[in-house]
Design a protein around this nucleic acid. Structure first.
Lengths: 233, 233
DNA sequence: GTCTATAGCCAGATAGAC
DNA sequence: GTCTATCTGGCTATAGAC
């Protein structure tokens, strides 16, 4: 009995996965706002009503795609940090930034789904917030390790309100970075996605050609801007 | 004859403007990807085919909206710079940043149209590039004036490729900023829109509450990061 | 320049047979 | 769980009368 259920569950999961895969493909043609259950079903040789057994509505399919995308870019950042040399926080930071950029350039439509314009009429449910914070967590982790090694310059004064936000945030994420450093990091986090977004969305067209070099420099500056220091040789 | 033509032209322009105004209103409900000529026509009490006399296709209407949006945010930035005290480049820079942010928060859907996810199937024509550069020009102007007053710290070394891009860009815009400074400014320009975009698109939800203060601090840091200096008291 | 009418599509969602 | 069929809407774009 368990085995049969198991097989069924497996088949169900596989179909659900292939639906998401096809939907991801179609994000490129239609964008999130025009993602169509019918078109996905058509392409899979299913009939549209059959899809509703897997995703009760278009928004639920969107939510699944969003969670997957956040997880993908988050895990790319985490892996980049883990693979970078432990000794140099600036290098670790830059590695995380490059991982985000690489993932975004490789998956521009999924990037648009999570960091681009909100989809009209769609409100992201709570379930997306965890995955959405993975990149930030990876960056915070780099800063925390730097602080542990004495390689994080003390952050300058911030206003009480800004500090309160930062403190709340650190607590909610279960991390331990100093609030003033967290405030600066929050700004750098947003700025990182400014660099990535402009490249992915085409604002650098005819403006920046040496993009990898440009980004590398800007990302390192961002890291140093939040106080990360390389160890003395 | 001229007068009659003039009146006709005026009526035509007025109708074209009201079409754009209604389309802007509908961007909020539908987003750029689902903007519908029919819905616009309906709301104006016209029939859809009548709209084609003013905008030969949906994309042409989109282009008109995009140009207007770039012009609006660009002129907001220009006016902010003009209104800021001439003596302090950091203050002038920050004023431009706040103007961009204010415009974006007041017109989130138009912001999404120009700085958000590309509209699938739509390619912006050349005519948009001029208006699109107005914000950047305003920021560059601040840096140039700072340099004139000796209030722009020399930019550090950049790679040859990055410098070449920056030089080309300055030339194409008909400006005169030093290429190394331009390279830094390009990064700051993208980062500014990272801050603004995250706020407008909801990434700061439950993350940053003291948003104006947070932004003010980050924008000033950005300006100082590209080398702007306040005059000695 | 606006109208009616039409072609030729598309969508999300549900009912009910099998 | 998949199917057919259907409801109820939507769309861009064009033809041709007025």
């Amino acid at each position: 009995m368990t085995r049969v259920t198991g097989a069924r569950e497996r088949a169900r999961t596989e179909i659900a996965e292939s639906i998401k895969a096809e939907a991801r493909r179609q994000l490129a043609d239609a964008g999130a706002a025009r993602l169509s259950l019918r078109a996905v079903a058509r392409e899979l040789g299913m009939v549209s009503s059959a899809l509703y057994r897997y995703y009760p509505s278009r928004d639920d399919l969107l939510t699944a795609l969003i969670i997957d995308a956040y997880d993908a870019v988050g895990s790319a950042a985490e892996r980049a940090v883990a693979a970078a040399p432990a000794a140099d926080p600036v290098v670790r930071w830059t590695a995380a930034c490059h991982a985000v950029r690489r993932w975004a350039l490789a998956h521009p439509h999924e990037y648009a789904l999570i960091y681009g314009s909100p989809v009209p009429g769609y409100a992201a449910p709570e379930a997306t917030t965890g995955p959405a914070s993975r990149v930030a967590r990876a960056l915070i982790g780099v800063a925390e390790e730097a602080a542990d090694s004495g390689l994080l310059a003390p952050a300058p004064f911030e206003s009480a309100d800004v500090l309160r936000d930062a403190e709340q945030l650190v607590r909610r994420l279960g991390m331990r970075l100093h609030p003033a450093a967290m405030a600066r990091l929050t700004a750098a986090w947003a700025q990182l996605f400014g660099l990535v977004g402009f490249e992915v969305f085409g604002q650098f067209h005819d403006v920046v050609h040496a993009r990898e070099e440009f980004f590398d420099r800007a990302a390192a500056d961002l890291g140093r801007g939040i106080g990360l220091r390389s160890p003395a040789a």
